[in-house]
Design a protein around this nucleic acid. Structure first.
Lengths: 114, 114
DNA sequence: ACAATATTTAACCATTCAGTTAATATTTCA
DNA sequence: TGAAATATTAACTGAATGGTTAAATATTGT
């Protein structure tokens, strides 16, 4: 059930969905509470939640609940670990000692092109 | 010149653009070399590069170059640091001792539903 | 000056996306 | 049983997105 990085980034591209993640980061919440946090109709939020769910960023909570009408969503961990790792890899571009060399090489090389 | 996290995620939502970042992560490259790496016309790549530039993920290299027709692009650091930090914050949802408590509370609480 | 090269901008088109309202489950509770 | 509450799916619409080809801009080299 691993979510691809591309799916994760596509799911997070919409600002509303990113804010939903920030809310779920505090604690799992039912769809209605999430919809109420935005000036947005329930169906619109429902679709955002579906995107997040299909892409594997959240899951519907199956735990026993006092009201079965509520659908409580919680974050899944894997996509965020993967995103974290990728961002760290990209950052390695600068932390490498290589970067200093790259700067130097870019400024002095003459015929080294592709 | 700080790029917002929302801009960063929007720029990375497209798989082509994410692959461009992966290529630039190795070393800065001219637009033509990037276009050649995908089965895609030069104008299409040019637009992807424009998105990445406008959103602040890459910059055109101003260093003295042997051929002024080439536009070499390189990654900017800040957006990736920010993305890394945000993903780490989301992950804290699990590494917190709180998480254990949350699981417990979810399973046992009865009337705690805001 | 002129042809070739590198890249972008312009104009166009098909698809995707995010929002809305209306209709459809499902569960709760009076 | 039946109205209220929670949430989703369906159908529609306008805006944004990503690709294409043609035209324009700037630089290089004969």
């Amino acid at each position: 059930m691993a979510t691809s990085l591309d799916d994760t980034l596509a799911a997070l591209a919409d600002p509303t969905r990113r804010r939903v993640v920030d809310l779920l980061r505090v604690r799992p919440r039912p769809a209605g509470e999430l919809a109420a946090s935005f000036r947005m109709s329930a169906p619109a939020m429902s679709r955002h939640l579906r995107v997040l769910r299909v892409k594997g960023l959240i899951e519907e909570e199956r735990a026993s609940r006092e009201d079965a009408r509520l659908r409580v969503y919680r974050l899944r961990r894997q996509p965020f670990v993967q995103l974290h790792n990728w961002a760290a890899e990209v950052e390695a571009f600068w932390s490498d000692q290589l970067e200093g060399f790259r700067e130097y090489a870019e400024g002095t090389a003459k015929g080294r092109r592709q």
